[in-house]
Design a binder for these strands. Structure first.
Lengths: 345, 345
DNA sequence: CTGTTAGCGCATTCAT
DNA sequence: ATGAATGCGCTAACAG
């Protein structure tokens, strides 16, 4: 059987309350230094480990955070996305969920809060997060879906932080990557290289998704800021090749790295060289980006940083402190070998 | 305040004990059908949610599983791997952690067990998993490290399942991908295509790592089974090009997809065409593999399936049932466009 | 500074 | 078939 606080108390010849004060009180209670020292020593000798279940019951706090990963383990993506896009999206989401977990890991470990990963199953309503298991919830929304899950969860009287979204329900703290700024940075880099005829490659299946809309908005914003008229998004390899011919594009900004890889394949097949004939830049810095098109320049997608920020915010909220309702994490440019100064036609 | 079992009891005009029997007893107690029905209805009306902390304290079981991700959030990889390899490894691990989480997700959600993700921090010894938070532990070992963590954890009197390893300490259930079989499949595929001069590309920084050793073993096994003498592993782009010249290789099996991407770059730069001059096959099916070398044929790495199997095994152990000490998950070949029948020199 | 008392919400005897 | 009593291990008041 496990050793309890009582046994420690007996061995240290103090009361259980004193042991509790020493071992768990945040210094709020005054205990004689020698007594405290003795208690600690005895506890260590006995291998005492406080029982969390009992502590939780008493304090009504678990110190655990719930992580709701909408993306990972999503069950019916096909119906929303179409089969081929679904496979694509699944791989991407896994990657980002990995980054999310990494970000949570760093932040949560630093602060010593375990994260309880709960999965939004069909029949697992919001109430199930209210069973006293967690002190707060961090929700990694699937940008490819709506906000239904978030909506459902937001009715819960728990501190809530939403990841991957800029527009959370009232009372929910939203954290997102600043897609627009990232896209603007990419476009500005191309502009700074002397390109003016810059294509935006994207807008296909993802059409209505917030993130991709904002990437396109970043492109348009940067173009306009440079006094240029943005081009309409082009999607599909054949269409891109056609558009390059028609508009004499000297650069392509693809809304994702995988899009950039597809663009590169189409362009190469059509005889264009990157970066000699065309500069190419992506978004995400996915694993392997270094091998796309001989080393894809891209925008690093700070998913892990976003997750870490989310944990920080959630803990603030759990502590009852106010937090900003919206936070944006800025991506940054990663320059490799697919962009080059424009040297004329 | 939350509604407790007592309030439900009062509203349903029964005792708290009866409510407990109805709502949580596994049918072991006899309760009149009508009473039970009334209790359930009242509970639903009141929005009663059982308090987990209290339940855990009473039953000494949490229904939660601990997930220890050694890879994600690993803190000092550089010292073990060297800087450039570390970056490489970090990206890879994030991907696989994503897959792990996806696998856990599917399995755990299905069985309605939340997973508590805990991070192996420097000062978080095995005892910390013994505080009654979890019923069992699933440990995703970092193949690039040793078994130190697993060793430390295995002293805990908790059901333990180790992922990513074939050689767990006694009493620990080990689950791994069958790297050797995967590598043998890849090599056999090449052999079936008529290739006999097949290079194994790998063995660099990863030299001593179990997984990569087993991939090489798979290659050697398949070669020998075909009556051929395996070649020594070659590592590095320049070395590969030299070896291709010297040994007249017609095919290359790379121990990882990223290795295949690097091999492809070196080979292309040296004027070799894939698959016209050389067939190429990788291992992992990483995200973007479809864009490597125009569509890399590779071995799918069933990380998610492994994780799912691990959860299943852990739950069996938690239930006290016996489980096989070792489980191997078979990878499968994914054929894309980098392998071709050998048509002579 | 320390000990005593009193639950937290629930599941489980044992009566009835 | 149901209810009263008991305690899981711990912490928070309060009294000394």
């Amino acid at each position: 059987m496990r050793v309890t606080i009582k046994e420690v108390a007996a061995a240290a010849e103090v009361s259980a309350a004193t042991v509790s004060k020493v071992l768990s009180g945040r210094g709020a209670y005054a205990v004689h230094a020698l007594t405290a020292e003795r208690v600690r020593r005895v506890a260590a000798e006995l291998g005492y480990v406080p029982d969390m279940a009992a502590k939780h019951l008493r304090t009504r706090r678990t110190g655990q955070l719930g992580v709701v990963l909408e993306a990972v383990g999503a069950s019916e993506p096909e119906s929303l996305l179409g089969a081929e896009a679904a496979q694509h999206a699944a791989a991407l989401r896994r990657t980002f969920d990995g980054a999310i977990m990494a970000g949570l890991s760093g932040a949560a470990r630093e602060r010593r809060v375990p994260a309880l990963v709960v999965y939004p199953g069909g029949d697992m309503p919001a109430r199930h997060y209210l069973d006293g298991r967690v002190d707060g919830l961090i929700v990694s929304c699937d940008p490819l879906r709506g906000h239904a899950l978030l909506q459902a969860l937001s009715s819960a009287p728990l501190p809530l932080v939403a990841l991957w979204t800029g527009q959370a329900p009232a009372g929910v703290c939203a954290v997102d990557v600043d897609h627009q700024s990232g896209a603007a940075q990419a476009t500005q880099h191309l502009l700074g290289l002397g390109h003016t005829r810059i294509a935006f490659y994207g807008g296909g299946t993802h059409g209505g998704v917030e993130h991709f809309r904002r990437r396109e908005a970043g492109y348009r914003q940067a173009m306009r800021a440079a006094g240029l008229r943005p081009y309409a998004a082009v999607h599909g390899g054949a269409e891109l090749v056609g558009a390059v011919r028609r508009f004499q594009f000297s650069a392509v900004f693809a809304e994702t790295d995988l899009g950039a890889a597809a663009a590169y394949q189409a362009l190469s097949a059509a005889g264009y060289r990157v970066p000699d004939d065309l500069s190419l830049i992506g978004f995400d810095d996915v694993q392997g980006a270094e091998y796309i098109a001989g080393g894809l320049s891209t925008v690093y997608h700070p998913a892990a940083e976003m997750a870490a920020a989310g944990i920080g915010l959630l803990l603030e909220r759990c502590a009852g402190r106010p937090v900003p309702p919206r936070t944006q994490i800025a991506p940054r440019l990663i320059l490799r070998r697919t962009t080059r100064r424009w040297s004329g036609p």
